[in-house]
Design a protein around this nucleic acid. Structure first.
Length: 241
DNA sequence: CCAGACGTTGTT
DNA sequence: GTCTGG
DNA sequence: CCAGACGTTGTT
DNA sequence: GTCTGG
């Protein structure tokens, strides 16, 4: 989960937990989606409770702490490990009060297995085999995130940023990669979005690998995904060759 | 005390 | 131009 | 993604 | 901002 994921395709895909998202504010955060090849340091829609309301807003995929002097990514904080997040000087305050949902339809992992590509020049280059990971029913799902809001003291502007929590792989991911993002069960969305819920033990129990039985993974074209200009549904297409 | 870190993954 | 680091 | 480096010898 | 290491 360190490089790319796909946002949901359209707002209507957020059928999940209709009660919870019925009065979702900030729907304009979903303008500009889908991003099929969404990378770190892009602004992508997330959902959190702010000022007592569940709302969507765009946030930079790389957590910049509120105390940052520069507002730039100076600490590696696009992912946070579930095993250590609660005790982290950097992340713990956000886990306590600033949890968010990151709506996606797919994410990609690069297998340690290398594939060899022969360039036009005849140069031999080895690259990692990417896999597309989705739900078997192809429905969107929610990654567990924590967010920060950095405020530019000069202009007063807000810069929301976030990190995705990672955990150990389930049996679908295990052959591909040694980490995977935390995917939240629908029944836990409400608790995750409740800023008043501070029981770190109970929160930690939510940060478990998602059931492998609901997920699938298949190889996709490395040549296609590697090109950052490629941003369409073909990113999800199973590799044919 | 003060300076410096605070973090993650695996390299498009 | 292309890769690296944040 | 974007900003910044891209390097070596030899030592303040 | 808050903790750690020197």
């Amino acid at each position: 989960m360190c490089y790319n994921k796909s946002t949901i395709e359209k707002l209507g895909d957020l059928r999940l937990q209709s009660e919870l998202f019925k009065n979702l504010r900030g729907k304009e955060a979903f303008d500009g989606i889908p991003q099929y090849n969404a990378l770190r340091l892009q602004k992508l829609p997330v959902i959190a409770t702010r000022e007592g309301e569940i709302r969507a807003f765009k946030a930079l995929w790389w957590l910049i702490p509120h105390w940052s002097k520069t507002g730039k990514p100076e600490v590696t904080a696009f992912n946070a490990r579930a095993e250590s997040v609660a005790g982290s000087r950097l992340f713990a305050p956000y886990l306590k009060t600033n949890r968010c949902l990151v709506p996606v339809s797919a994410f990609f992992e690069y297998s340690s297995r290398e594939i060899v590509r022969i360039e036009q020049s005849g140069k031999v280059k080895s690259v990692k085999q990417p896999y597309c990971i989705r739900m078997k029913d192809e429905q969107p799902f929610m990654l567990a995130g924590i967010y920060s809001v950095w405020i530019n003291k000069q202009t007063g502007e807000e810069l929301p940023t976030y990190a995705v929590i990672t955990t150990t792989p389930n049996s679908v991911l295990e052959p591909i990669h040694n980490r995977m993002p935390v995917i939240l069960e629908e029944k836990n969305f409400e608790r995750w979005l409740d800023p008043g819920f501070g029981d770190s033990g109970a929160l930690k129990n939510l940060l478990m690998p998602y059931p492998a039985t609901k997920m699938k993974a298949y190889p996709v074209s490395a040549a296609y995904l590697y090109d950052r200009n490629h941003n369409d549904r073909k990113c999800w297409e199973p590799q044919t060759t």
